[in-house]
């Protein structure tokens, strides 16, 4: 079973497909769960404390805004852990503030730079594209098992 990073990291479809084809999806919920289940100082809503932007320095330079470094403290460990990645190009649902947008760009860049099997595709817009979408993911995950 490989650990597959999914982008968008909150994707329901990718999460379902990766689990269905026998692998473990790595999404933002895993990091958030770890944060909110760790005791410490109260820092709602997702227990991001001042330590997190410092931890994020591992993946983003010091001149990068703290919002991005804080977000990278959630995603960075998952990217390092990932054995493979599935990326949806320009997903409509992953819009947000500038912090989210820049984190998403950095995340996609890190996944492309990392030497792991990677599948990039777009959301389907018809039934026929749905077949190609599922087939591409199924074939990609099947090949992961062989590797």
């Amino acid at each position: 079973m490989a650990k597959v990073f999914i982008y968008p990291a909150t994707s329901l479809i990718l999460s379902t497909l990766v689990t269905r084809f026998g692998h473990q999806p790595l999404g933002s919920a895993i990091s958030i769960r770890e944060h909110i289940q760790t005791p410490g100082f109260d820092s709602p809503p997702i227990q991001i404390t001042s330590d997190d932007p410092q931890y994020g320095l591992k993946w983003a330079a010091v001149e990068v805004p703290s919002g991005i470094r804080g977000r990278m403290s959630l995603y960075g460990p998952l990217v390092e852990e990932a054995d493979a990645a599935i990326i949806i190009d320009e997903p409509d649902l992953a819009f947000g503030c500038m912090g989210c947008a820049r984190t998403n760009e950095l995340l996609a860049f890190m996944l492309r730079e990392k030497n792991i099997p990677r599948l990039e595709l777009n959301y389907p817009t018809s039934k026929e594209e749905g077949v190609t979408f599922v087939a591409a993911i199924k074939e990609f995950l099947k090949n992961l098992e062989r590797q």
């Binding site: 994707s11 817009t125 077949v131």
Partner: peptide, 23 residues
């Protein structure tokens, strides 16, 4: 916050369902 993403993806779920059945 967050349901926006679910709503978007559930609109596409019918294509994925069809894709799963076909594949």
């Amino acid at each position: 916050p967050g349901y926006l993403g679910h709503e978007y993806e559930m609109d596409l779920a019918r294509y994925i369902t069809y894709g799963l059945q076909e594949t």
